[in-house]
Amino acid sequence: MADIFHEIDEDLRRERFNRLWTRYGSYLIGLAVLVVIAVAGWRGYEWWRLQQDQAAGAQFETALQLAVGGKATEAEAAFQQIEKEGTPGYRVLARFRAATELAKTDRAAAIADYDAIAKDPAISPLMQNVAQVRAALLLVDTAPLADIESRLKPLDTPTGAFRHSAREIVGLAQYKAGDYKAATDSFTAILNDGETPPGLRRRAELLRTLAAASMPMPAPTPAATPAAAPAVQ
């Protein structure tokens, strides 16, 4: 008797499955096909992206070799080509390297390129800050002190990644402008920061010494005039 009930139960399940398959089987097959196509498409995209990255990397290496070989014009053109055709990561690197090569022949144009990078919302804030520092370095010898300070003040925060570089460049600009007291304070701020890199710390110690030595000596205090001796009667 139990076997009969078991067979009936199996028949009911089979019949229910057949009805469901008749109604939804084509959809399930279509869904399975879509999953296979999606996986294959994603794998294909990953392969294509890898090929693009490798090609851009090879182009970037070639451009670097041109730069190292002293062929600034050719290197600049190669980096600009990567800016147009490379993958996103290499495009950003190429923009920096192109500006670096351009600075050898046209400093003003290179500064404009760095400023454009610093204002590009498509670039990460960290790389924007790098561009700000690079532009300020090119300007430190010629720009007014106020310009350097306004450019780098946003980077000089207690936890800013580029606060050390910002303070050093501002200190150099203050020193060149003859504001030795402000320069001494800037280099002291670098030395008082426990996270200052060792190399920068050594430079700051030297520059603070130079700035402090350049400050004018305070005027000597006039000696008091001795009181006149009383007249002898």
Rank of each mutant, 00 (worst) to 15 (best):
R91S: 01
K84A: 13
R201L: 05
P197M: 03
K153Y: 01
W42F: 15
G178T: 12
D185E: 15
A212S: 13
V36L: 11
M127G: 00
A32H: 07
P197N: 07
Y114A: 03
I4L: 13
A182T: 09
T157I: 02
I29V: 15
A136H: 08
E168K: 13
P220S: 10
R13Y: 04
Q65P: 10
T22G: 14
K181Y: 00
T188E: 07
S214M: 02
K176R: 15
Y24D: 04
F79Y: 12
Q59R: 00
A2C: 00
F79C: 08
R201V: 05
E7A: 12
A38V: 09
G89S: 07
R201D: 06
T87G: 01
G89N: 06
A32P: 08
N129F: 05
V232P: 06
A116F: 00
I4A: 09
G171M: 08
D11Q: 13
V35N: 08
K153E: 13
L172W: 05
L200A: 10
A161C: 05
I117C: 03
G86P: 06
A177K: 01
L200V: 12
T105P: 11
T184F: 02
E149G: 02
G30P: 00
E149Y: 04
G171N: 12
Q59Y: 01
I148D: 11
Y175F: 11
I82Q: 06
A58F: 08
L66S: 01
H164D: 08
T184M: 04
R43S: 12
L31G: 14
L137S: 12
